[in-house]
Simulated scan of single mutants.
Amino acid sequence: MKDWKESQKAEKEASHKKVSKEIQKQRKYLEDEVNQLQNNLDRSNTQKQQDPNQLAEGDRVKLKGGSKHGKVEKVMKNKAMIIFDNLKTEAALKDLVKVDNEEPVNSVNKTNVDYTKYAKNFEAKIDVRGKRRDEALKEVEDWLDKAVLLNQHELRILHGKGNGILKSAIKEMLQKYNFVKNTYHENPDYGGEGITIVELSQE
């Protein structure tokens, strides 16, 4: 009887030791998991802090492919509120590029802007026929920046046919804009290859 009790006691002690080891093993595993998650979080935060393109309130930005600069007023999930050429409007983060503080900014920090006035006066058509290549591209570039910020859908660029140099230069320029969804020539009865129609993405 005594031997049986001692045997039972030994089995219980062995069982307790086994359970204790298993608990310690699980605890060590959980501690390692927590440490790994913390390390990943720290690395993620460090990368965000080191990302030179991470936008914050007050940063100066421009549209990808554009020339005019604006100032970030507020950053949201996938977009930002920008003050751009007296206009306060939203733009997708993917379409914005951070610029150096030393670069001139073509914006005025006004919060009460008559958006309707700018939209009403905006022409969805621009005529650059007869102009020099660089002059025409600069005008189209500035005009496109405003069109995007005014949420325009369809635009027309009158560049003429001629020898095709201006038409080709404008086509090449349009390809660098993320917000240009599609381009094609006007109906032959209304100008054909002398006019490029530009469809803008509304995302």
Rank of each mutant, 00 (worst) to 15 (best):
residue 4 W to I: 03
residue 4 W to E: 14
residue 6 E to S: 12
residue 7 S to L: 13
residue 9 K to W: 08
residue 11 E to K: 14
residue 12 K to Y: 12
residue 12 K to I: 03
residue 12 K to E: 10
residue 12 K to A: 15
residue 13 E to A: 09
residue 16 H to V: 01
residue 16 H to Q: 04
residue 17 K to N: 14
residue 19 V to K: 00
residue 20 S to M: 06
residue 20 S to H: 04
residue 21 K to G: 01
residue 23 I to C: 04
residue 24 Q to G: 10
residue 25 K to Q: 13
residue 26 Q to L: 11
residue 27 R to D: 06
residue 29 Y to D: 02
residue 32 D to I: 04
residue 32 D to T: 04
residue 32 D to K: 05
residue 34 V to F: 13
residue 35 N to A: 04
residue 35 N to W: 02
residue 35 N to Q: 00
residue 38 Q to W: 03
residue 39 N to E: 15
residue 39 N to D: 14
residue 40 N to P: 01
residue 40 N to Y: 01
residue 41 L to I: 12
residue 41 L to D: 07
residue 42 D to T: 11
residue 43 R to S: 15
residue 43 R to A: 12
residue 43 R to D: 15
residue 43 R to V: 08
residue 44 S to Q: 00
residue 44 S to P: 03
residue 45 N to I: 13
residue 45 N to R: 08
residue 45 N to D: 08
residue 47 Q to T: 08
residue 48 K to I: 08
residue 50 Q to N: 05
residue 52 P to R: 05
residue 52 P to C: 13
residue 53 N to S: 11
residue 53 N to V: 00
residue 54 Q to S: 11
residue 55 L to T: 02
residue 56 A to K: 06
residue 56 A to V: 12
residue 58 G to V: 04
residue 58 G to R: 03
residue 61 V to Q: 05
residue 61 V to F: 00
residue 62 K to I: 02
residue 62 K to G: 02
residue 63 L to F: 06
residue 63 L to Y: 05
residue 63 L to S: 11
residue 64 K to I: 07
residue 65 G to E: 10
residue 65 G to D: 01
residue 66 G to I: 00
residue 67 S to M: 12
residue 67 S to G: 09
residue 68 K to M: 12
residue 70 G to R: 05
residue 73 E to D: 05
residue 73 E to I: 11
residue 73 E to K: 02
residue 75 V to R: 02
residue 78 N to L: 11
residue 80 A to N: 06
residue 82 I to N: 03
residue 82 I to L: 15
residue 83 I to T: 12
residue 83 I to S: 07
residue 84 F to Y: 10
residue 85 D to M: 09
residue 85 D to N: 14
residue 86 N to Y: 12
residue 87 L to I: 14
residue 88 K to H: 07
residue 89 T to I: 08
residue 89 T to C: 04
residue 90 E to V: 13
residue 94 K to M: 14
residue 94 K to G: 14
residue 95 D to P: 05
residue 95 D to A: 06
residue 96 L to N: 04
residue 96 L to M: 07
residue 97 V to R: 13
residue 98 K to D: 09
residue 99 V to N: 02
residue 101 N to Y: 05
residue 102 E to W: 01
residue 106 N to C: 12
residue 108 V to I: 07
residue 109 N to Y: 09
residue 109 N to I: 14
residue 111 T to F: 09
residue 112 N to Q: 14
residue 112 N to R: 11
residue 114 D to C: 10
